[in-house]
Design a protein around this nucleic acid. Structure first.
Length: 359
DNA sequence: GCATCCCGCCAGATT
DNA sequence: AATCTGGCGGGATGC
């Protein structure tokens, strides 16, 4: 077919200008951040892969990556086909406790930076099957094929990576050393590469959750990760993903990810929802109060705060504030789902205030 | 030129 | 048979 790419309409040119690919915007870390914003709310119980993918504007495949890693630390758990339950941050300390005990039993307490020879967990060794996907929990005579697959799963790799931090005395671990340690005997360089790739994925997610942090081996340029731990996890759960304390390293969560062009193959037919959050908009959407996360970024509390400043405001004032708030933010949301969500909440607030008014 | 890791193919599992 | 899951590694992007 003839190429006519030099003849472009101004619209096309605009489209092209918008299509500058940014790898960072599409990172798993950003996705997790957005995922948290979407689901880290009291009123979320179950969610589906499809739904999450659509709302976050990414392919299903990426959601699998995220939920597998989140499941490894208990934030979500698989309930069935295309169905996960949202457990939230409160489950992390318990999961970490489990992982630590399990890890100690399995010999994860050895040094990991230099040594690469401690035994790798095979899943059937863990009696305690916390968070195992349903269906994996019962068959004790598990098939070796299954074990083989499980052994290579992101879920298990993530758990083992966390165990290394929890059980060893090294608070800094390189992905290389982790890969070696978790690769047991195989020194195959291809396996190593693959394992390291997966560890990057996991590290991105855990970094985004501020469980670990990228750093360097002291005195060298060698990149490594440091365990930040579960300190104030509950506080994190309430504030980490509401934009008040974003990571400085990467501007995680400032934009819905994976919305612009694909990396190479120009799939123009892609019907991904294209969305763009603006940092300053989010900054205006602060949580209700420290440690009191109610509605996530869509919290109505800004409105009520405004009210409090307005001595003697009536509900009309509240509604006006709400309308002002909604009109301030609404145009910024290009993602139909998110906009829909905002609309839903606005409507809910309106109803709530009307109710209050009547009373 | 190495570090990072997105992307989507496709095999295997599940319904 | 259709659909869901998710391991895997090519190769693009970042630094």
């Amino acid at each position: 077919m003839e190429k006519m790419s030099w003849i472009v309409s101004s619209q096309d040119a605009d489209a092209l200008a918008l299509q500058s690919y940014s790898r960072k915007e599409k990172s798993l870390g950003v996705l997790v951040s957005n995922f948290m914003r979407l689901y880290n709310r009291d009123d979320v119980d179950l969610f589906g892969i499809d739904e999450a993918a659509a709302k976050l504007g990414v392919e299903r495949r990426r959601i699998y990556d995220v939920v597998n890693i989140l499941e490894s630390i208990g934030v979500v758990s698989r309930k069935g086909k295309n169905l996960y339950s949202w457990n939230g941050f409160v489950h992390i300390p318990r999961s970490l406790h489990h992982l630590k005990e399990e890890g100690l039993r399995e010999g994860f307490g050895l040094s990991t930076i230099c040594s690469s020879s401690h035994k790798v967990l095979h899943d059937d060794e863990s009696e305690d099957s916390f968070n195992l996907p349903p269906g994996d929990q019962d068959n004790s005579s598990s098939l070796s094929k299954m074990d083989h697959k499980k052994e290579r799963s992101l879920w298990l790799l993530s758990q083992n990576f966390v165990k290394m931090f929890l059980c060893s005395h090294d608070d800094i671990i390189t992905l290389d050393s982790a890969a070696k340690a978790l690769l047991s005997d195989s020194q195959d360089s291809m396996h190593m590469r693959t394992k390291v790739r997966r560890l990057y994925d996991i590290a991105n997610v855990l970094s985004s959750m501020e469980l670990i942090e990228k750093t360097h081996i002291p005195g060298t340029r060698k990149p490594a990760y440091k365990w930040l731990g579960s300190k104030s996890l509950t506080e994190k759960g309430s504030s980490l993903f509401n934009s008040t304390n974003e990571s400085k390293k990467r501007v995680f969560g400032t934009e819905i990810t994976n919305l612009s062009t694909k990396r190479n193959k120009t799939d123009c037919s892609s019907n991904y929802i294209r969305t763009r959050y603006k940092k300053h908009d989010e900054e205006e959407m602060k949580p209700a109060a420290k440690g009191c996360y109610v509605f996530g970024p869509f919290s109505p509390t800004d409105a009520s705060k405004k009210n409090n400043n307005n001595v003697g405001t009536n509900n009309n004032g509240r509604l006006q504030d709400l309308e002002a708030l909604s009109s301030t933010h609404k145009p910024q949301y290009c993602n139909q789902d998110v906009t829909g969500l905002l609309g839903y909440y606005t409507e809910a607030w309106n109803k709530w205030f009307e109710e209050l008014d009547r009373k």
